[in-house]
Design a protein around this nucleic acid. Structure first.
Length: 120
DNA sequence: CTATTGACGGAGA
DNA sequence: TTCTCCGCCAATA
């Protein structure tokens, strides 16, 4: 949760750490999940000092799909992220976060295994 | 306290 | 489609 005791940078890093390899999230989405829907810009300010190797900051791109840095494009390609020109193919590689369950116990009916979804 | 800055986003031109 | 403006947020000076 986004309690006040949690510093903004901590919340941002917590979200970014969740982005799996081969997927990307926009600065805006990260801000949203960190509890500040309109703070995309502030997210960038945090990631600017990203020295922690556990934080895959290269998986955070602009809403347009363009990586903040050209070198990130290389790293993303190595993870299998597809591009259209110089921007990430967001239709296929945008991360769909699993949101926290509000009613634990519900969801996922009778032994239905989760099927991998192919993105378009 | 106000002003500036910045790995942003989106509406318009 | 690309480029400019302007709003938004947090950190700094």
């Amino acid at each position: 949760m986004a309690s006040m005791s949690d510093a903004w940078p901590r919340r941002v890093y917590a979200v970014v750490r969740q982005i799996p390899p081969g997927r990307v999230a926009s600065y805006g989405l990260v801000g949203l999940l960190a509890g500040r829907p309109l703070a995309a810009r502030a997210v960038g300010n945090v990631l600017r000092h990203c020295d922690d190797p556990l934080v895959p900051c290269h998986r955070v791109v602009r809403a347009t799909g363009e990586p903040a840095f050209p070198n990130h494009r290389i790293r993303l390609r190595r993870e299998g992220v597809g591009f259209i020109g110089r921007r990430v193919d967001l239709a296929r590689y945008l991360w769909s976060p699993r949101l926290p369950r509000l009613t634990p116990g519900e969801g996922r009916g009778a032994g239905q295994a989760r099927r991998a979804v192919r993105r378009r």
